[in-house]
Design a protein around this nucleic acid. Sequence first.
DNA 1: TTGTAAGCGTTATCAG
DNA 2: CTGATAACGCTTACAA
Lengths: 342, 342
Amino acid sequence: MVNADPGAARSRATIRDVAARAGVSKSLVSLAYSAPEAVSPQRRERVRQAAEELGYRPNHVARSLNSMRDDIVGILVADSRNPVLSEIVDAARAALFETGRLGFVLTAVALDEDGTRLDIDLLSMVADLRPARLLIVGSVPEMRLVREAMPDARIVVASAIPVDLDDAPSVHADDAAGIGLAVAHLAERGHRRIAHVGGAGGPTAEARTRAFDAALAAEGLPPGRVGLSDFTERGGHRAAGELLDAATPPSALVASSDLAAIGALAAVRDRGLSDRVAVTGYDNTFLAGLRLVDLTSVDPGNAEIGRRAAELLSTDAPAAREHRIVPRLVIRSSSEFVAPTD
Amino acid sequence: MVNADPGAARSRATIRDVAARAGVSKSLVSLAYSAPEAVSPQRRERVRQAAEELGYRPNHVARSLNSMRDDIVGILVADSRNPVLSEIVDAARAALFETGRLGFVLTAVALDEDGTRLDIDLLSMVADLRPARLLIVGSVPEMRLVREAMPDARIVVASAIPVDLDDAPSVHADDAAGIGLAVAHLAERGHRRIAHVGGAGGPTAEARTRAFDAALAAEGLPPGRVGLSDFTERGGHRAAGELLDAATPPSALVASSDLAAIGALAAVRDRGLSDRVAVTGYDNTFLAGLRLVDLTSVDPGNAEIGRRAAELLSTDAPAAREHRIVPRLVIRSSSEFVAPTD
DNA sequence: TTGTAAGCGTTATCAG
DNA sequence: CTGATAACGCTTACAA
């Protein structure tokens, strides 16, 4: 049998193979990886070389089996197709990589007949890997279950309010400030009848609507109408249509998302009101930057949210419960013009 | 010490706890999961009940440590932000779920200073989980390394041509047919000077360009110009601009992606040529369906690609090397009108 | 049909 | 600094 040949790399080399080749014990090899400074330089080098020759890589699974791992961090993302969340994830991954950690991203949310549910199987697999740190990106449902599955992990939530998870710091954009920027910008351009397209689709939407009301008041403007819309293009189109067809239509629309804003833009265009009705979006996704769209949008600073979250995750120090990132407004042609005087 | 109390669920229940509670041995519990029919109904029920009471879930990591797992399948996606790939992944996951398998998605590709590279650490972690089956979605670089890391796994490639992986079946859209649909549609509308926006950005782009040339010939049309563009909006905008500013501009543009088409649409609009120059996209992503865009696009049938891939993955039977999914054309206003006569 | 024992690859403990 | 030895949670021959 060929298998009898010890040199026949049947499959991956193990720590034993490395030890044998380097002429040391298994434990020394293990040490050489986990606490290099505790091993004499000569031996360390021999181990390194043996490992290289054999193409050895430590088995993550075996490691996770008997100790919590601080070198891997789980990233649970609520919706893998949401570009906002993707940006945050990418930034966080890059930052984690800097600290020498391996971030693996899993979409642990499944679409159920009635809404979204946490995929318990996937969650338990993540838990089995025993990551010492976990990043939750977006509004993952049933966060309590996450904590139960990983009672000892440090958890940070990005771009969502932690629910049932009162020990997890969160990093998110300051939506009130963001909406405020949009409203102030429009007011500055002379708009006085500003309406909101949004308010539906979850707590984030509701918070943005409240921020809208507050921002109008802060600018000394009369209360604005709200066309109820979720974050979708269809919703924005419908809501904007209703607002524009009213007796006294607004001259500017502040939408709760870029998609809703794009729907609103279509409604505006359909009525021949382009360059008469301003529109602003939210999130400054790549959509806003498309030449065909060219939408003024609030940039929540997703990359910074990701970085800050990674930072909070990497430390062991206690952290403030809430971290607000300051948004900025990216002005494009959808709102550049001055409000027409009635 | 509280720990002395065996009932104090320190953390997750293990197979031992279940065995103790059910009054059987560990192995029987294991058997009850892996080969239920080999265990007497009474014992099986007792095990089931004990497991439920303790909230026991098998530890995936421990399982993977000593046997290849056919219940989990790894999904390697080339670019988590590509909506086309996301659709395929979602469809595949749903189909895998039907077969009782757990599909976990990992983006194993990292952006390097020079291009994309496979994230070897992540790949080896996937390999450590020992999935019996692996789905590669999109053009993952260095596929050879994937095979090396998992020599015994069944691999299927979706939406990409397997490179260095001659034993893996692939499922992808029939791009030649797709481009053919777009060209035929335009020809039918009276267009005779049709140009292509694309050709750059990888083998897929090149294949689409060849298909474009062939399609023109098939329609009996003269060869068309190619404005070199990658899949991005910026690329499409630039390339379309050049084509439109030529001495004899085309009356229709066939783009290699929706994004490139959207860039082209902007170039068309900027020149006041809307409703005079038709544009078609490729992939029929949600972008094409936005009212503001309303782009005719080739739908490659991503959901079906995902389903077929999952199907091929789930069986053990040898499969044909290449599976082509038939695309269809979704006609929208960007190309509905009849070509203006010169 | 059930139980015993030996791994899977690694880390932790604790004598040398 | 090194090297046995015992976990980690599970599967899987092999015995009973």
